[in-house]
Amino acid sequence: MAEIKQIPVRIQITDGALIPDKGNKTVRTSWKISLFGALGLLVFLPLYNMAPVQQFVLQAWGLFFPSPELSARLSSIAAGTYKNIWVDILLYLPDGLSVTFAVTLSSIAMATIFGLAAGLGQISRVVLLNRIATVYVEVIRGIPLLVQIFYIYFALGSIFHLDGFLAAVISMSFCYGAYMGEIFRAGIQAIPRGQMEAALALGLSRSQAIWTIIIPQTVKIILPAIGNEFIALLKDSSMVSVMALVDLLRLAKNYGSNHGDYFPPLTVVALVYLVMTLILSWLVAVMEERLNQNAR
């Protein structure tokens, strides 16, 4: 009889940017193209719109296609009233960026706690806990995030006087906790039953076994999936812009309506989101690799 090999399980869902692990060259290449493309554009666009560069470009155009609009823009540059919108936006960005970061990081921390609780609840033998966790996951996953945000901010917020930031973190983490709960549950159940039996046979309590034997192994196999959730959460944090909370997207929208031109701010914000998610997906890949090296 051949020895039974335990096949390492890896649960991976890919609804975000792909995780560029070393083995997958195609993903790695497209990751590089996307990242350097986005960074390149973020550098190129502000430089290209600097006054001297614009002056030179417009003059060159004017040689072949003269138009009154062109000369008006040239004279505004000469008069010193020309404004490089692209640089202007980049200077504005840090405010929105810090809000987006604050919402995302707080929500990630809270959602992980909710998720672990929901996952443990779903495998719990205590009927009440089990019910609560299962119903929580069902209900939350059945309602669109945007509706939940509206609900918590406008409906509940008017009763409990929640400020924008708190409402944002509560709705994001409550929603994502349910999705992570499913991942934790699947991860815990993917650990062979023999692991729990061996721990119990050694005299460990069920909760000791879960925390010292099951969860450490679970974390390793669900890391790609959890990483993807983090990335998705970062992206979905843009939805909180519907509240009175000036995150990256809301900032771009405000800027666009103030200046009557949505193209530059939204382009910059899209690129910034792309850079962030790509870097985050790379971090997840590095973390995963570390874990794989350690406890083999």
């Binding site: 335990q6 692991q195 390793k220």
Partner: peptide, 9 residues
């Protein structure tokens, strides 16, 4: 146990 059930981590 038949399958050893050592803790792999």
């Amino acid at each position: 146990f038949q399958n050893f059930n050592l803790f792999p981590h």
